[in-house]
Design a binder for these strands. Structure first.
Length: 275
DNA sequence: GTCGATGTTATCAA
DNA sequence: TTTGATAACATCGA
C-alpha cells in the first residue's frame, strides 16, 4: 500500500505522538511479523523511550534510547495507529506497544506482508534493508538522477520502482510521474532523451510533494497514525482511471501490464516505444 | 463458489 | 542483465 508519501505522513504522525514516550510492554499477537527474534523485541523494548522517527525510502526508522532502533516496513497493508487503550481491538492487529502513559501504538496489517525489526542504531548504515537503498527521490539532483537512469537498459517503469535505483516510488507514483513527464512505461531507460528524463525528475518531485501535502493516497485502506485517510486519490491523473478521459488530451486512459503490475497510461500523451 | 486483482518485495528460472 | 512467474496473505468485485 504505502509508498513514499504515505510513509512520510505516517512518520510525521508518529513524531507528533510518540517522541518522548516510554514503552511499558509489548504484546505480540502474530510473531511472524517480527523479523529476528520476537522475544528480543518483547524483552528489550520495555523501559525504552522513543527519541526520533525518520524515513528512508519506504522504511520507517524509530530511534529509541540505549542505542536501539526499530525498523518498520508497512509493505502493502501495514498501519501504525495511535489509539486510546479502550479503543476497539480491530481485526488484523498483530502487535501493541503499551506506553507508560496508557496509550497504545498498534501495528495492524491485513495481508501480513509488513514487518518490524529491532536493530542497533550504530550499525544502521550497514543494515541490509538500508544499505541497499538508492537515493531519495526528493533529494537527488537532476543531473545525478538522469545519469543514474541512463545507465540501465531496463523498462523505465520497473526501473523507477526498483528500490536500489531510487528509494520510495511504487506503482501509483511511478504511473503518475511517467504520465506527467509524458514517457511510456515500457520505454528503455537508456533510450529516453535527456530532455524527458529532466522532465521526469521534476515530475517525480512535483507528484510526491503534492501527495505528501494531501496526506497521501487512500486507495483501499491506507490510514495515517491517527486513522486519517489521504486524499491524493482525488488528484490521480492516470492511476485507477482506466476508461476515463485523459485530463490533458481527452483520450481514454488505458490499463496495461508492465513488469507484472497494473499500469495506467494515455497512449496519446505517452508515445509507445518503437522497438 | 471461483478467479483475478490489490499500494511490496524476495527469490528462482530462463 | 533483464524478465516473468511465483510466493507470502486477506479481501473485494465481477
Amino acid at each position: 500500500m504505502p509508498e513514499l508519501p504515505e510513509v512520510e505522513c505516517v512518520v510525521r504522525g508518529l513524531r507528533r505522538r510518540i517522541i518522548g514516550r516510554t514503552i511499558q510492554r509489548v504484546t505480540i499477537h502474530l510473531s511472524r511479523i517480527v523479523r529476528g527474534s520476537p522475544l528480543d523485541l518483547a524483552e528489550h523494548l520495555p523501559g525504552r523511550t522513543f527519541r526520533d522517527v525518520r524515513r528512508r525510502g519506504k522504511l520507517i526508522i524509530i530511534g529509541l534510547d540505549g542505542g536501539l532502533s526499530l525498523l518498520v516496513h508497512l509493505r502493502m497493508t501495514g498501519q501504525l495507529l495511535w489509539l486510546a487503550p479502550e479503543a476497539r481491538l480491530e481485526k488484523h492487529t498483530h502487535l501493541i506497544f503499551h506506553l507508560t502513559s496508557g496509550r497504545h501504538l498498534r501495528y495492524r496489517d491485513q495481508r501480513q506482508f509488513g514487518w518490524l525489526q529491532l536493530a542497533e542504531s550504530e550499525y544502521l548504515d550497514r543494515h541490509p534493508q538500508i544499505a541497499q537503498l538508492g537515493p531519495e527521490p526528493l533529494e537527488i539532483g537532476r543531473d545525478a538522477f538522469v545519469r543514474r537512469l541512463k545507465n540501465h537498459r531496463r523498462q523505465i517503469k520497473p526501473l523507477l520502482m526498483d528500490q536500489i535505483v531510487l528509494a520510495g516510488l511504487g506503482n501509483i507514483y511511478a504511473d503518475e510521474s511517467l504520465f506527467q513527464a509524458r514517457i511510456h512505461p515500457l520505454q528503455r531507460a537508456s533510450r529516453v532523451s535527456t530532455v524527458k528524463l529532466n522532465r521526469l525528475h521534476t515530475a517525480i518531485q512535483d507528484v510526491l510533494c503534492k501527495a505528501i501535502d494531501c496526506s497521501g493516497s487512500t486507495v483501499r485502506q491506507f490510514r495515517g497514525t491517527d486513522g486519517e485517510i489521504g486524499e491524493f486519490q482525488n488528484h490521480f491523473r492516470v492511476y485507477d482511471r482506466q476508461g476515463q478521459p485523459c485530463l490533458r488530451c481527452g483520450r481514454p486512459i488505458i490499463k496495461i501490464r508492465v513488469g507484472g503490475r497494473g499500469t495506467h497510461i494515455c497512449v496519446r500523451c505517452q508515445r509507445a516505444p518503437k522497438n
